[in-house]
Computed example of a mutant assay.
Amino acid sequence: MEKLTGRLSEQGITVRDGWLVGETTFTNYLRMGSDSPATYSLDGVMSSELNAELIYRGSNIDASPGLHVPVLAQPDLHDDVVRHCYRIEAMDPPTAIAQARQLWGRLLSGVDTPTDDDAANLIANLKFISVRDRLLADIPGLEESMRDLLLGQTKQAPHWQRVDRASDVLLQLYMRTDSADAAPVLTSLGVIQWWEGHGSKAHECFQRALEADPDYRLAQLTDHLVREGVLAEWATNRQAAYQPPHTRGPEIGGIGLA
């Protein structure tokens, strides 16, 4: 213990406090050298005022942070996706992007489950890189550069209600894809999780995407950011960071008012 604090001190790092956490108790690290260091119950932390404040602010940690996908009977739309892919390939890129944005905007502004044809159409559009990137950049609902939107680094906060709706729609799409069509949808879900600061969920999305397509480049690149501990700037800004819906005030211009 003394060796560790000494080595850290040599590097200019002063250990002011610390805890060794077990399954049911924790112990103050700086008192480990005493004859009988006190241990404290983790249950006491869970019922503390500090923990209640963290939960209120949306900072509680789930027991299982994985991505939960509902198991529902949904039709496989692969044949319809292929049909839409041929149609999109026959268009010039600006027209294809414009039509995809119109569909995406309609789905994001609605509340209903996408029809089978809309779902197949959107899954097909996400398979085209230029269309996919434009649709991802449209999710936050801000007039900013695509680069800043995709990297989550605009000064203005995203419209998080719109982002939540995008997640819902993408989950609906994922439940209707086969493995060949899943990578773009899962990667898009992962990007949203990364924007929100949910690294574990983002990593799981990217890993599932790479299981579907090991060479899917956006999943590879963004998962690398997650594994390196890189956060979207939105997640590091208290005014812009994602908050669960039950903790938000009404949105005005993308800013939640408490």
Rank of each mutant, 00 (worst) to 15 (best):
residue 96 A to F: 04
residue 96 A to G: 11
residue 97 I to S: 09
residue 100 A to Y: 01
residue 103 L to Y: 04
residue 104 W to F: 10
residue 105 G to K: 11
residue 106 R to K: 15
residue 107 L to W: 01
residue 109 S to K: 13
residue 111 V to R: 15
residue 112 D to W: 10
residue 112 D to G: 09
residue 113 T to K: 11
residue 115 T to F: 02
residue 115 T to W: 00
residue 115 T to N: 06
residue 116 D to R: 10
residue 116 D to H: 12
residue 117 D to G: 10
residue 117 D to Y: 09
residue 119 A to M: 02
residue 121 N to F: 12
residue 121 N to S: 14
residue 121 N to T: 11
residue 121 N to P: 02
residue 122 L to H: 03
residue 123 I to G: 00
residue 125 N to Q: 14
residue 126 L to H: 11
residue 129 I to H: 15
residue 130 S to H: 15
residue 132 R to P: 07
residue 132 R to W: 08
residue 137 A to I: 05
residue 141 G to K: 02
residue 142 L to Q: 12
residue 142 L to W: 04
residue 144 E to H: 12
residue 145 S to A: 08
residue 145 S to V: 02
residue 145 S to M: 06
residue 145 S to C: 03
residue 147 R to S: 14
residue 147 R to F: 14
residue 147 R to H: 14
residue 148 D to W: 01
residue 148 D to M: 03
residue 149 L to V: 08
residue 149 L to C: 06
residue 150 L to F: 07
residue 150 L to Y: 08
residue 151 L to G: 02
residue 152 G to E: 03
residue 155 K to R: 15
residue 156 Q to I: 12
residue 156 Q to R: 14
residue 157 A to W: 00
residue 158 P to Q: 04
residue 159 H to T: 09
residue 160 W to Y: 09
residue 161 Q to W: 13
residue 161 Q to K: 14
residue 162 R to M: 07
residue 163 V to Y: 01
residue 163 V to P: 05
residue 165 R to P: 06
residue 165 R to S: 08
residue 167 S to I: 05
residue 170 L to D: 02
residue 170 L to A: 07
residue 171 L to H: 11
residue 174 Y to S: 03
residue 174 Y to E: 04
residue 175 M to W: 04
residue 179 S to T: 12
residue 179 S to G: 10
residue 180 A to P: 05
residue 180 A to T: 13
residue 183 A to D: 00
residue 184 P to G: 04
residue 184 P to F: 06
residue 184 P to A: 05
residue 185 V to Q: 07
residue 186 L to V: 08
residue 186 L to I: 07
residue 188 S to V: 06
residue 189 L to E: 05
residue 190 G to I: 03
residue 191 V to M: 09
residue 192 I to H: 01
residue 197 G to W: 02
residue 198 H to G: 12
residue 199 G to I: 11
residue 199 G to T: 13
residue 200 S to D: 15
residue 204 E to K: 08
residue 206 F to G: 05
residue 206 F to Y: 11
residue 208 R to W: 13
residue 209 A to H: 01
residue 211 E to F: 13
residue 211 E to D: 14
residue 212 A to R: 03
residue 212 A to W: 05
residue 212 A to M: 07
residue 216 Y to H: 14
residue 219 A to K: 02
residue 219 A to G: 07
residue 219 A to M: 04
residue 221 L to R: 12
